[in-house]
Amino acid sequence: MNIAVPAEKLTPKDYASDQEIRWCPGCGDYAILKAVLKTLADVEAKPEQTVFVSGIGCAARFPYYISTYGFHTIHGRAPAVATGIKLANPELDVWVVSGDGDALSIGGNHLLHLLRRNVDVQFLLFNNEIYGLTKGQYSPTSHVGTRSPSSPTGSVESPVSVTALALGAGARFVARAIDTAQAYLPGVLKRAHAHRGTSFVEIFQNCIVYNDGVHSAFADRSVAAEMQVMVEHGKPMLFGKERDKGLRLRPGTLTLETVKLDEDGIGEEDVLVHDETNRTLAGMLAAMTPPAMPVALGVLYCDPAPSYDSAISAQVAAGQARTKKGGISSDLNAIMRAGNTWTVKG
């Protein structure tokens, strides 16, 4: 009798490849890589079933540093490649790693369709509001006035709001995190991994060379407590060093405002409780921008729906179950002979 020996549990290190990492020292990508490796170990990802797909950019080098399957494709097209992978084999666990230029500029169209189709992948968007690999041009998420080699007098374009765009495209899972937040980033990634359908995670990432400190208004340790609100389903949305601030609907309006507990008779019961299945609320949380409001982090929205690949597989399986007989070749012979045929005798 064979006794199954449980495989030794893999550690984060086991998911790292032997390749030398080529990101700049101090790049936020290192922290994200660390969190992803921890996540893979935590969820006990099977290396052979896991695929990392990327486009082009600094973030897109990610697959080379992970010891699972990896495909470094072309600029902006990772969502399309990932969709093809899931169509060929829905069992594979697919992660897409992208940046703001890759996902929102050259690949904007593909991201839109990946989200609306709800293909079952984890989509990580590293947002550093700059083009790094091409040496520092402004990106579709750069704020107005960004000075860069291609906008020496300041950019004049309005930036895209990443999470609002994802929600608008029909994403069923939208989360946000900061690159260095090792305390909760793996937790957010685990939630993303568990969700069936496209799990969209915006990660605020720091480019130390071309856009250092771009997120510091809310990401710096010194302001984090006051400028970040970690949302959690079913819990009041509190923040502040003393957890004495909260979000609520301004009475009589559909607008979020921050309130201080124990001021003007406001208690914890007045603070809005997060409902991650509420798309309208998710949109309002996504729209909060500093300094007027804190930045919402964590799982902003999660409301599962059937994934594209599972629906397609079901259609194919249903059809095959109806017509299964004698293999494709004999079946094809039958298809070709259906309809109007005639025999020419020798």
């Binding site: 495909f71 093809g84 060929a88 369709h113």
Partner: peptide, 14 residues
Amino acid sequence: IAAACSAIGASYAG
């Protein structure tokens, strides 16, 4: 482009 890239993804996946 997505048509070509998804076909490539499918081939990659077997």
